[in-house]
Design a protein around this nucleic acid. Structure first.
Length: 498
DNA sequence: TTAGGGTTAG
């Protein structure tokens, strides 16, 4: 087979398959392989199974068909098939094959263990782990990972401490776990211990921990990692710098993000995107657009993510017309076809700018079936501007997932904003009758290495009174600045009306 | 063929 002038053979097929970006390409090469009689060499069908498995349910079906007709299978064929099934969530099927498999390798066990862990089935995972004839560092790490993701840091820690041998991977897993769950102190302690034990920093460790910091807003750990990067003169790759910029931006330290960004000797499109997004999410629309301009001037090609940042910046800063212009420019000047996410930004932009009718029209004319997020954005805008009539119209189109708890509460919020308490009651009743429970959203802030979490109706914080008193005063001040005439109206702080 | 990895609207 000729592929870009190269004659494919047993050795090149796996590489060709790896380069496939869609199922059709794999199928095409599969046909060629069969025609040229290369299926007999075990490497080739194994690579086919592996690469079919990358493309969801349809890919798995094709892989299974091939697996079933294979005359010879080796351990890798079985492992790839089982791994593919676990990746698409077909755990039961994977387990069936696992049980049928004549001679399992440790990788087979680890693959199924990973399947249970990814599905959050920790009881099954633990049972399997216990019954393993032998375990290696991957088995232990997988289980630590599972408990860590499930939020059971105690169990994760017990296993971590019991691990006979450690590499930087399990250290990274447990530290990231502590960071994500807000256990800053434990994270820092372990990070110090990891350094003392002589583990050198690597890209994976730094990126994982910083990503966890960005996710949970843990600036303290982020600073710690940045400090050791500088102290140890760790040579930062572009990816590491990007994560660092992102961490500072997400933790609200825009000046630090900006200084790391400006100190980078090499940047890629992601560097620009994280910086732009950082400014945008904190309401610095003008700065975000400046980054966008500079990015173009320095010859970087904006991508789909860039435009999400740009539109978001325009939306949060109230640059409605600039946003509309950018939206049209993205396809015309950059050849990027807007995706549903970009339409979402536009609906948010128009909605926030009180151009609700245009937002509504865009929902109805865009080339996508509106999803719950799109309707939610529009309903949110109706709520923001108290547009009950349009909200009703939206509700006529309310063909979204009835089980999505967020949408019910959004609906209830619109009614509440409009003072329609019967409406609120009806939605609440509906929620009860279909058995929807809304998981409460939480916000958190880190002060002196301690993360404080707040959820609606939760008055358990020891400083509840003074904290909410201050929030109330701030809200009053903001209101006074924004709407001097309404300064005496009651202020809504979350679910509390004070 | 098995464990950790940056950006994506509300």
């Amino acid at each position: 087979m000729q592929w870009n002038g190269i004659l494919a053979n047993t050795l090149t097929y796996p590489f060709l398959l790896k380069a496939c970006s869609c199922l059709q390409m794999v199928e095409m090469i599969h046909t060629q392989i069969e025609k040229n009689g290369f299926l007999g060499d075990i490497f080739v069908p194994n690579a086919l199974i592996d690469n079919y498995s990358r493309f969801g349910g349809l890919g798995i079906k094709a892989a299974l068909r091939l697996f079933t007709v294979m005359e010879h299978r080796d351990v890798v064929s079985w492992n790839s098939m089982i791994g593919g099934l676990t990746k698409v969530g077909e755990l039961r099927e994977a387990r069936k094959l696992f049980d049928e498999m004549p001679e399992k390798s440790i990788i087979t066990w680890n693959t199924v263990l990973n399947g249970y862990v990814k599905a959050g089935e920790m009881e099954e995972a633990f049972q399997l782990f216990e019954s393993m004839p032998q375990r290696n560092i991957v088995s232990w790490s997988t289980l630590v990972m599972g408990y860590s993701k499930a939020g059971d840091m105690d169990m994760a820690r017990v296993l971590f401490d019991e691990m006979p041998v450690k590499t930087s991977v399990p250290w990274t897993i447990i530290i990231s776990g502590y960071v994500e769950k807000g256990f800053t102190k434990e994270a820092i302690e372990l990070y110090d211990r990891m350094e003392r034990n002589g583990f050198k920093l690597d890209d994976g460790t730094v990126i994982s921990i910083l990503a966890a910091c960005a996710e949970s807003g843990s600036l303290a750990v982020g600073l710690k990692v940045h400090d050791s990067i500088e102290r140890l003169k760790f040579r930062c790759s572009v990816a590491v710098c990007n994560t660092l910029v992102n961490m500072y931006a997400k933790c609200g330290s825009l000046d630090k993000a900006w200084s790391v960004f400006n100190g980078m000797s090499k940047r890629d499109v992601v560097s620009w995107n994280v910086m732009l997004q950082g400014f945008a999410m904190h309401g610095h629309g003008r700065e975000a657009l400046c980054v966008f301009e500079r990015m173009k001037k320095e010859g970087f090609k904006p991508d789909r993510v860039t435009f999400i940042g740009v539109l978001c910046a325009c939306s949060h800063a109230g640059f409605i017309d600039e946003g509309i212009q950018c939206f049209y420019a993205m396809e015309k000047d950059y050849g990027i076809v807007p995706e549903i996410e970009h339409y979402g930004c536009m609906i948010d932009l128009l909605g926030r700018g009180e151009r609700l009718k245009e937002a509504f029209m865009l929902v109805n004319t865009m080339p996508f079936v509106p999803n719950a997020v799109i309707w939610g954005t529009l309903l949110g805008a109706c709520r923001l501007h108290g547009a009950t009539e349009l909200a009703e119209k939206v509700l006529d189109h309310f063909k979204l997932d009835r089980m999505d708890p967020g949408n019910y509460s959004m609906l209830a919020n619109i009614f509440a904003a409009a003072g329609d308490w019967d409406g609120v009651a009806t939605v609440r009743l509906q929620m009860k009758s279909v058995g929807v429970q809304k998981p409460s959203g939480a916000s958190s802030i880190e002060i002196d290495n301690e993360v404080h979490e707040f959820t609606v109706f939760d008055r358990s914080h020891p400083n509840f009174d003074s904290i909410y008193g201050m929030v109330h005063r701030l809200a009053q001040d903001l209101k006074r600045v924004a709407h001097p005439k309404d300064a005496t109206l009651p202020v809504e702080v979350g679910e509390l009306v004070i």
